[in-house]
Design a protein around this nucleic acid. Structure first.
Length: 199
DNA sequence: CCCTGATTCGC
DNA sequence: GCGAATCAGG
């Protein structure tokens, strides 16, 4: 693959939107994230610093400024196109897994668990497609216990927390999300039920 | 371990 | 110019 005008254009656009290099690479296809990053640099749009001193030494990062200047120009404001979705309540309240360390300093509401919620999420308006997917992957679920959960495991609860017939999905979770792809599909519903499936 | 971008350097 | 390998972080 070569960098055609169109591809470069898409690259610029996505990069401008704050998309990650790997995402861009995936979208473009035929290139790795390294290629994307390399191109980004060659295009000179890696990071727009206003005129100033550039990093002189390639081996040292700029020393910390005197207790007042923050070397973070804040590139992307955070244009997350995340649709306003209400996380569908799974079987139980948020397990709020063992957060040994604040890996993700995101605003996470801690819901005091322990309420006897309905064992099964009302399968109301969730796309049948997603549900079927979930049913399938739940067969393959790792059935992890609370303690086995990590930042990268799907934390979707299955079964009744009050019984032994309870576990967490445990499949590889989407980056930045608490659930695996299938469960993300039922947990986060698009504003409008869309049927198009891509990728 | 997963990911991110940054840099180098042979091609 | 290109991008894999590598580096440096989160």
């Amino acid at each position: 693959m070569s960098w055609t005008d169109e591809r470069v254009e898409l690259l610029k656009k996505m990069w401008g939107e704050g998309q990650s290099a790997s995402q861009i690479a995936k979208e473009l296809g035929g290139v790795t994230r390294n290629a994307v990053i390399g191109k980004v640099h060659r295009l000179g749009l890696s990071n727009r610093n206003s005129g100033g001193s550039k990093a002189a030494e390639p081996k040292e990062k700029p020393a910390a400024a005197p207790a007042s200047a923050a070397p973070k120009p804040a590139a992307a404001p955070k244009p997350k196109p995340q649709p306003k979705t209400e996380p569908a309540r799974p079987a139980a309240a948020q397990p709020a897994a063992a957060d040994a360390k604040p890996a993700t300093p995101a605003r996470r509401q801690i819901i005091p668990a322990g309420q006897p919620l309905p064992p099964q999420p009302s399968a109301n308006e969730i796309s049948p497609e997603a549900l079927a997917k979930v049913n399938e992957i739940e067969k393959k679920a790792k059935k992890l216990s609370l303690m086995d959960l990590t930042e990268r495991t799907c934390k979707w609860p299955v079964g009744d927390p009050a019984t032994e017939d309870f576990w967490f999905c445990g499949l590889p979770a989407q980056q930045g999300k608490p659930y695996c792809e299938a469960h993300v599909g039922v947990a986060f519903q698009p504003m409008s039920s869309r049927r198009d499936r891509r990728r």
